[in-house]
Design a binder for these strands. Structure first.
Length: 670
DNA sequence: GTTTCGGTTCTTTTT
DNA sequence: GAACCGAAAC
């Protein structure tokens, strides 16, 4: 983050008065932007499309646009709505805009699509038949619920698709606003699966969500769109509220998001979308970059701006990038233009296997580090998390510091979810998932028992009421009763001692009377987990209500990544970065290593089978364009399997496509 | 009838 | 490492 940021409280905090920023600086836009950027930043009202290639100052352009609207157009910061895909992107841009114009941007509705939807639904969910205290189901919850729905169906499980499969299918269809029945039929055309049963599972899943007053990620978008479409007054209010709408990474929007934006700007048309079709890497979750390509058709009179001057990478790296992407035809034609001096030729590193690849990376990183490049300026990228397994082992052995942008999200770890479950049930008594998660921590209570009890209590478990506890204890198996007696005071205190605004205290008490001991018995790394929970309790300080805390953590995927206060403060440490390509989007490092550039790995076999290789090629393009100075493309020749067997690997097609003379072959490690 | 436990299998990408 | 399955234990 910008080192010169003013001491602004994070976006999770309460309001900081505008008077904090007394003197608004006069800005010279022409001086601080190049011609391309200046044109986009100062675009007149109406729809505008900014095609921003990698490393061309896309973020800068958006930030200056925010500043421009406020200083030159006399718009208030809260009248500008910025929509992004990650919390991190939103926070970075808003905070940097605050620095520029000394006005508060972080307190409005701007943020991710999902947090925006959440915010509107917290005010108006009752208009579409939900309670405002609805629960947000994360990926893990959704999966559990889907599992339960399938189990209820009484089909033969062996031949029935897994929850993951159904959820991703339903998710994509809903994102596209497509026809479910047709999609299901097509998807299972060549299998034994009966589409009718799949549709039944879907119906169950929808019904269960409604009963539990819960929404999954897709629902947030669907329901907020529904709200705007159906309710004229609310629509008019927000159309008037947001005088300008800016959308980042527009190539990654799906049909719902495009529609949502469309409704928001329908009256005034002041919409600027920014993106790069070459970097569209989320079609597997319903993104459709035709939203981006066809923008000029959808918004008559749209102005188009292109940013092509790349400040990030050396010409040699850009040559590789341009070469890679030229394999994909149907896109906006654009080429990255280098302004930097010549540098090193990117390396093609052939190694024997994953361990040798790991040792190459470590040795090279050491060498670069000796030459004065901090480890934090070096990043290792890969297609899938497990591709980095050997590297992680070797790094530990070599005692080199490293940070993984983890696949396991902080808030989805079992122990974090366990303690948050208490809060969830207190807030939303209909939340069966929370109820069963909580009660199944007690001995002799499993799935069946918890389900039975939940229905015995009428599908609502209001823990703040004394009589609920009486009924509950009567229904529990004897072995579990004692455990519940211990917990009871924690729940009753929520109401009696007014802990609604102090979720941390509830978590603390839950830990004290029950969960700390539970962890000792159930996890061998309970000490680390206990630390996480202490960190979580500290984190709750930022919130003034339990509801706000819960929806925030459901939408905040990764504490370490998203700039919240991380429980572990290794952030400033000089460490090598390990990340998937997806998670590295929008970021840059001096040195990039790409691992396992082999057929079936990068490109991923599954992805190609499902959708062809063009998205994988774009993904590779994203990887390459993260590098500022040096690029190492690694391709092992064999992969060792767990059972000791070996698989021979072919080099990735993406490597073969690159002309030999723009790469330097490294006789690597054997 | 349910829960628990132990063994086996396989890792795409994420708000 | 966690998710799934089948068998033992309550």
């Amino acid at each position: 983050m910008d080192a010169h940021s003013p001491p602004v409280a994070s976006c999770f905090c309460g309001f900081v008065g505008d008077e904090f920023f007394a003197n608004v600086p006069r800005m010279n836009f022409k001086e601080e932007l190049n011609e391309e950027q200046y044109a986009a930043v100062t675009a007149s009202d109406g729809p505008a499309l900014v095609v921003a290639a990698a490393g061309t100052g896309k973020t800068r352009t958006l930030i200056y646009r925010l500043a421009y609207l406020v200083t030159e157009k006399e718009v208030q910061p809260w009248e500008v709505l910025l929509l992004t895909f990650t919390n991190k992107a939103a926070k970075e841009m808003l905070t940097r805009a605050e620095t520029l114009v000394q006005r508060r941007f972080n307190s409005g509705y701007s943020g991710t699509f999902h947090s925006f939807a959440n915010r509107l639904l917290r005010s108006h969910a009752d208009c579409i038949g939900f309670g405002r205290d609805f629960t947000i189901l994360d990926a893990d919850d959704a999966k559990k619920l889907m599992r339960a729905c399938i189990d209820e169906l009484d089909v033969e499980k062996k031949h029935f698709p897994k929850p993951d499969v159904l959820l991703s299918l339903f998710g994509v269809v809903s994102g596209r606003m497509g026809d479910l029945s047709a999609a299901v039929t097509e998807r299972f055309e060549h299998s034994e699966v009966d589409p009718d049963w799949v549709l039944k599972a879907h119906a169950r899943y929808q019904a269960r969500k409604k009963e539990s007053n819960a929404m999954d990620f897709d629902d947030l978008l669907i329901h907020v769109l529904k709200l705007l479409v159906e309710n004229e007054k609310i629509r008019a209010f927000y159309q008037d509220e947001f005088k300008y709408v800016l959308v980042d990474e527009y190539q990654d929007t799906n049909a719902i998001q495009a529609q949502l934006v469309h409704y928001l700007v329908k009256t005034h048309g002041n919409l600027m979308v920014v993106g790069d079709d070459f970097q569209s890497i989320y079609s597997w979750r319903g993104a459709d970059f035709r939203n981006f390509l066809d923008f000029e058709k959808a918004y008559a009179g749209a102005k188009t701006f292109k940013l092509q001057i790349n400040y990030r990478s050396t010409p040699e790296i850009l040559d590789v990038a341009n070469e890679v992407i030229s394999g994909n035809p149907e896109q906006f034609q654009k080429e990255l233009q280098a302004v930097r001096e010549n540098g090193d030729v990117p390396h093609l590193v052939k190694v024997r296997d994953g361990s040798m690849q790991a040792r190459f990376v470590i040795e090279k990183a050491r060498e670069l580090n000796r030459k004065g490049i901090p480890l934090s300026e070096i990043c290792v990228l890969y297609r899938s998390h497990f591709h980095a397994m050997e590297l992680q082992m070797e790094l530990a052995r070599a005692q080199m510091h490293y940070v993984v942008t983890s696949g396991v999200r902080f808030f989805e770890q079992a122990h974090i979810k366990d303690v948050c479950t208490v809060l969830r049930l207190l807030v939303n008594p209909s939340d069966e998932l929370a109820f069963s998660r909580l009660i199944e921590m007690l001995p002799k209570v499993g799935k069946k028992t918890s389900h039975k009890i939940f229905h015995k209590l009428g599908g609502r478990v209001n823990l703040q009421r004394e009589e609920t506890h009486e009924q509950l204890i009567a229904a529990l198996p004897a072995a579990a009763r004692e455990g519940w007696e211990v917990l009871k005071p924690v729940f009753l205190a929520y109401h009696e001692e007014n802990l609604q605004n102090d979720p941390g205290e509830v978590v603390f008490r839950f830990g004290k009377v029950f969960y700390t001991e539970y962890m000792v018995e159930n996890f061998d790394n309970h000490k680390f987990r206990a630390e996480d929970i202490d960190g979580l309790i500290d984190f709750t300080v930022k919130f003034d209500s339990t509801e706000a805390f819960l929806s925030e953590i459901a939408l905040l995927s990764n504490l370490d990544n998203e700039g919240g206060k991380a429980p572990s403060d290794e952030e400033n440490e000089d460490a090598l970065r390990l990340s998937t390509v997806h998670q590295a989007k929008g970021l840059e490092w001096k040195v990039i290593f790409v691992l396992f550039l082999n057929e079936d790995m990068f490109p991923s076999k599954k992805a190609i089978e499902e959708a062809g290789d063009s998205e994988e090629r774009r993904l590779f393009y994203v990887a390459v364009t993260r590098a500022k100075d040096e690029l190492f493309l690694c391709t092992p020749m064999v992969r060792r399997q767990r059972d000791g067997g070996m698989i021979f690997l072919d080099p990735s097609r993406f490597i073969s496509e690159i002309p030999e003379d723009i790469l330097r072959q490294n006789g690597g490690f054997f």
